[in-house]
Design a protein around this nucleic acid. Structure first.
Lengths: 344, 344
DNA sequence: TCTGGCACTCGCGTGTGCAGAGTGCCAGGG
DNA sequence: CCCTGGCACTCTGCACACGCGAGTGCCAGA
């Protein structure tokens, strides 16, 4: 008896899976007859109808109008993603294409640009790539350049290749020897350290200088700390907005809030921020906090040069998306970007 | 008699102006009756109809269907922009708002970001701002940093605050003294020079070094020249794509090619490239070379820190746009950005 | 040269009718 | 007890017809 119950449930799940697959393919509500024709479930339309009724009762599917086919709900997609589908690995030509496309990059900007375009093209959706975040990275080098007697340029270079620069207006003239000394001391202590740890390591530094130079040193350090702390500066790159036109028929209504969301870096950052670091995150429809994205799904994952992720990337598309394929593409791209970053 | 002929022409032009203004406001074909009601031309609808027939004959307006009102053609807008309209100056509160908004910027990235957002908001259209181009700028400073025994980072800083960095893999170990010497020599000759002129000035440089160091020097210089020459790297910033949703009813058809165009930096760069430097350029509808933008108009102008323009900015909107207002906003923003750049 | 009048043309919104797809339910069979 | 075939029902989408209103072009008169 218990066996039969499970049997039943298995079939319902199969029906749900079939509905999701068909709907994603055709974009039209799917009916019982079409279902049995296209997938060879070994039962009749009537049986499927009963299962559909049950699935609707449970809230996994929904019919837009009384005599139309069924459409998966957010809950239905959720179940599909969690239990019914597996991430579809990229084919080996696809892998080669990815690798080839990313290998040509010359600097960090280029890596990010290429990545985001690639992802948009692979998934035919909107792609988002976050620049390797300052917080997670380590200091590769800090450079001080005297531009004018009392003007110093500070350049911060991270292990991920990111460069941040700041102008410093010093309280007085800065001697070249002092600057060289300061540069050496800063780098001796900070190089290789994680950015958030750096201020603690440099705190005592002004004490090592002569009284006269301390204001200058302090000013430079203050600017450096500011640059280190400025997490807001996390930048994001977008591509594939033109793919939004494939969204649906009730077009302007759906697309406008999405375009607005995409313009707000803050929204995007928060969106990616919700990604749990290593594992791939899928947010479906109303699961997204930002309501402009209530009819979209976000697939995101962290990427990084080593084991740990320094930033995130992802894809935004309609809830009706090809989840296995999208997840496969996102995962593959994230891996390769990680490798590229590790190499450089 | 000649006076009467001119009188007539003047009225036709007034009619055209009125049609453009009304159509821009209402987005609906404008008829003769509505026209005389809203603008007080001192004549009857019938007279206006005759003028309209003449204007249509000349190709300035066009009726979408036999019994509908008239819509300006590209040629009509062109005449409007050239002869019938004046750039509308910003009101003084608007000027203050612009100034205030832009003054808060801390670095070049920030200036560009703020500018593009401001422009999008003011015009309620898509704004495009080109980063100050490397070609036009001058060298402020070139920095060389040894990251590893045979790895040097090259940082190029321009007078417009732009920073470009490159990794250099040297043929052998690089001594710190050699590097310091090279740095000093490069800056002595290149600082203050226009970027395209720099390679010529540094050509002879390897000769000043010992035989053993020349390969390294040459490698570094080669990378520098490459960075200088790389005009392709001209970057562009976009904002206001969400405003595209206000385009029209035949929406997806119109908007898709536009979104595609906006994704192609190359297209945008060429678009801005067509701007004649100082004067404001307006490209209307089919005047745009890129056919995806055939139903849009582009208003663009150069901006710069001094007299001469280092880059361009502009706005992309439907051919049916408020030209005087848009041109006013573009001009005002360009001026203020120029000032900001000059100050920093 | 402008004006008022008039007949004409269409686009658009509304309403009706029909076909097709899909459902829910019920009774019968394994 | 579950599955199946059949049947009546519901609803959408589409095609077509119709009438209204906006707008025009033209003509005769001031």
């Amino acid at each position: 008896m218990a066996g039969e119950v499970r049997q039943l449930d298995d079939r319902k799940l199969a029906v749900l899976r079939a509905i999701v697959q068909d709907y994603v393919g055709t974009e039209e509500p799917v009916g019982s007859k079409a279902l049995v024709e296209r997938h060879n479930l070994g039962v009749s339309p009537a049986t499927v109808r009963n299962d559909m009724a049950a699935l609707e009762e449970e809230g996994y599917i929904h019919q837009p109008h009384t005599s139309a086919g069924r459409i998966p709900t957010d809950k239905g997609y959720r179940l599909f993603v969690d239990k019914l589908a597996e991430i579809k690995p990229m084919s080996s030509p696809e892998r080669r294409a990815i690798r080839h496309f990313l290998d040509g990059a010359v600097d960090l900007d280029d890596v990010v640009t290429r990545t985001v375009r690639l992802l948009a093209q692979l998934t035919r959706q909107v792609a988002v790539v976050q620049y390797p975040s300052l917080t997670r990275s380590t200091v590769r080098h800090i450079e001080l350049v005297a531009l004018a007697p009392a003007k110093v340029m500070l350049v911060l270079i991270t292990n991920t290749g990111r460069v941040e620069q700041r102008m410093v207006d010093c309280p007085g003239t800065v001697g070249e020897t002092v600057l060289a000394d300061l540069r050496a001391r800063i780098n001796a202590r900070a190089a290789g350290q994680r950015l958030p740890d750096v201020p603690g390591l440099l705190e005592e530094l002004p004490g090592a200088f002569e009284q006269a130079d301390r204001p200058t040193v302090s000013t430079v350090l203050a600017t450096l700390f500011e640059a280190l702390a400025e997490q807001n500066e996390e930048r994001i790159m977008l591509a594939g907005t033109a793919n939004l036109t494939r969204f649906g028929h009730d077009f302007p209504l759906t697309i406008q809030p999405v375009l607005e969301a995409l313009e707000e870096q803050v929204v995007l950052l928060r969106l990616l921020g919700e990604t749990t670091d290593a594992a791939m995150t899928v947010r479906i429809g109303r699961e997204n906090a930002y309501e402009g994205l209530n009819s979209t799904s976000v697939v995101s994952v962290g990427y990084g040069s080593g084991d740990e992720s320094v930033a995130k990337l992802g894809v935004i598309g309609p809830t009706r998306m090809d989840y296995p394929g999208t997840m496969g593409a996102v995962r593959a791209v994230a891996r390769y970007v990680g490798q590229i970053l590790a190499e450089s």
